[in-house]
Design a protein around this nucleic acid. Structure first.
Lengths: 406, 406
DNA sequence: GCGCGAATGTTCTGGCAAAGAACAAAGTCG
DNA sequence: CGACTTTGTTCTTTGCCAGAACATTCGCGC
């Protein structure tokens, strides 16, 4: 039951039913591909004549294409329809603390080319570097295919309407307009998004065909910090100040270690990769020691995880402690949002088999109902490049989104 | 950017634009009442002919009515339109731990009659009592006006689709079907809803005409427990298991007092009225002592609040401690949801002038940004009967809701 | 009192899209 | 080879948006 906003509504016109039905057809084809016109008519409960009409328009637009006819037990053989994604390209860019990744993908998020370089935090130097790499990548791999957009993923708060990065502590960016200069340099539309939200969008829009995508879920990213992309009623939650989803700074204890945010005992100071590393190295966590200690130690989180899997007890103990606190954090999400699932991303998911029982038991202790305790917690490996897939989703998703009406 | 759910979508038909535009007209009249057809045409950017057509249908339906013409500087005098709310009635029922309130209101939530009785937790005895009271109230006060629904507000988790009360600890109800028997007894449609959500719905749908209603806010109820009704993107958040918004059981400390839920240091054990009373009486909080101690002590939360306002130091100290912890709880909501405002309801809001500075300072200390720290915190007095207004909203809101499309 | 302009409200005509029937196409099976 | 089945297209009807034309009702100036 949604309320109509009388200050910003979209009136229905003569073409509104057509817009809506075109999007429904497009989405049905996307999820049931390959699919015939007759099957679409059955699913939509309309006549086949209508479907011919609608698909003809989508084919003319270049959104769909006709494949071959296929065998059928009786009657005329149906002609299958597909969404045109393989020759529509996106460049996804993932800017992280140490490295920046650039990936060329199609509209389905399938990787075509991937490269990376040391992150350049200075925007004036970053834009030319990105321009050179993107143009080179397109010249080498695009062929006749057209790049329809850039999806830029950053670790921080973003105002997607203006493309401004409001605050990205890992890059030292505050109110940086990265979209404008990059669009000017490349002549391609640029979409900027916060990393956990991008990961959630990838789940929503680039899931495997046929897989059911929940309309309420949380994507939790465990890296240098803890972030969350929250989806409620099929829509991303941004909040009034673009700062929704900061579960990383929910306090677990009133008197825990001091966090970068100034608070005490935040989820992040127990479960971020920095915190796990400090624990492994036998140091108390503090923002200063973490930044100072880690480069010199030469140990990475990936290293700690693989040592734990290999059986090193100290590594496993550090990770188990992380899992315990992470479970407490997930329990907070379950109580406040009651999602139908929580997806956890980050390097520590490599050791998921070892961590899951710990996380589950903490959630079990802290849940209000058995149903809530059973909330599925799903790992996503870093090797699936969720952030880059999110970058692809930024460009391709608007094609499939429901029209804004009323 | 909303995703179309391909398993449960609503196709656009020939009548879809009409449905949409009818609802837009209805909502514009509601918010700008009284308003002329010509003004509606300007606001909607359509011809006046169209407006005549749409309003004629709404008048025939009985949703709108024509008032008098009014003066205008030049030209034909416009004929004003109004939403028909004054002769469409709702019976709102608020079942609380100790008392049950029954209120007859119109579709705008204006009170016509109000009565209360000691809560009967036994459903078999409750339904006949409610039937008797509702029929008597309608016979006495309704006159020729028609009651179009019952809005039943319950302190607990509800499955609104079935009308089942899943869990209401204060009443000892688990999986109780209250809607079915009540509908059978009265022959009037019954809507059942959780109390904090009902309060949030009242804010959304029964706000003062002209007042801007935010699309993202949280309604926090402080009573025997702490509940929250969360609205995101203009829609209520229920979550997968109808248990979203349980901020009352978010732990503030890992080793605090034990809560009814089995957890430790939940927000609720510091800020519920039971906790405040225990603190005032100098007792450590525990579920058992609270239930045992309070009836015997004879002190109510309203009494403590008024003593605090009158200057009693012990009462004020107890309330200030509550405010400090409540501030910590609100800070969690701000971090995770970034609402454009938080509304606080409950008896303690009577002392808001004294409590607000404390709450604000805690939020200030614990916020990530200045913008987040400035989130408006608005009190709603218990004397406004927010729950009962919510009950009215349950019945009247569907009339104004946006049609479900795509 | 009457004509003029201005604003509101109604009626009428045109055009577009959905709805559904009729038809054409392309296969299987007896 | 013809009956049957299923798919896809075409065509007619129907209903609603769109916008122009028209009717109504007021103030104002002569």
């Amino acid at each position: 039951m949604r309320k109509i906003n009388t200050r910003s509504f979209v009136r229905a016109t003569r073409w509104t039913p057509r817009e809506i039905n075109l999007q429904i057809v497009l989405n049905l084809v996307r999820e049931h591909e390959p699919i015939s016109r007759a099957e679409l008519a059955r699913q939509m409960k309309i006549g086949r004549g209508m479907v011919t009409y609608l698909t003809a328009e989508l084919i003319a637009q270049g959104a769909l294409y006709e494949g071959d006819t296929v065998d059928s037990p009786r009657g005329r053989r149906p002609q299958m329809l597909y969404v045109r994604t393989h020759d529509r390209l996106v460049v996804a860019i993932d800017i992280r603390f140490s490295s920046t990744f650039v990936m060329l993908t199609d509209f389905s998020g399938n990787s075509i080319a991937l490269e990376s370089f040391d992150t350049i935090a200075d925007r004036e130097a970053l834009v030319p570097e990105l321009k050179a790499r993107v143009t080179r990548m397109l010249a080498t791999h695009a062929g006749s295919r057209h790049c329809e957009g850039i999806g830029l993923v950053v670790p921080g708060m973003v105002d997607v309407s203006t493309g401004q990065v409001l605050n990205a502590p890992q890059l030292g960016w505050r109110n940086v307009d990265i979209r404008g200069p990059l669009e000017a340099a490349l002549g391609i539309p640029v979409h900027v998004e916060n990393a956990p939200i991008a990961c959630a969008l990838a789940r929503m829009w680039l899931g495997q065909p046929g897989a059911t995508v929940p309309t309420d879920f949380v994507y939790v990213t465990v890296s240098d910090g803890i972030g969350a992309g929250v989806v409620v009623n099929g829509q991303v939650v941004r909040g009034q100040t673009n700062s929704a989803g900061e579960f990383g700074h929910v306090p677990l204890t009133a008197d825990g270690p001091t966090c970068l945010c100034g608070g005490h005992g935040c989820l992040e100071v127990y479960t971020s990769n920095l915190a796990t590393l400090c624990r492994y190295l036998g140091q108390d966590f503090s923002p200063e020691t973490a930044r100072a200690l880690l480069p010199s130690s030469g140990v990475t989180i990936a290293e700690v995880v693989s040592r734990a899997i290999a059986g090193e007890e100290r590594a496993m103990a550090a990770l188990q402690d992380t899992a315990r606190h992470l479970g407490a954090g997930l329990a907070v999400m379950i109580k406040t949002l009651s999602p139908s699932q929580i997806i956890v991303g980050g390097e520590i998911t490599e050791a998921w088999d070892q961590l899951e029982p710990t996380i589950r038991s903490v959630i079990g202790e802290r849940s209000l109902t058995d149903l809530a305790a059973a909330t599925p917690i799903v790992p996503e490996l870093a090797s699936a490049y969720p952030r880059l897939r999110g970058g692809a989703a930024l460009v391709s998703a608007p094609l499939f989104a429901a029209p804004r009406i009323a």
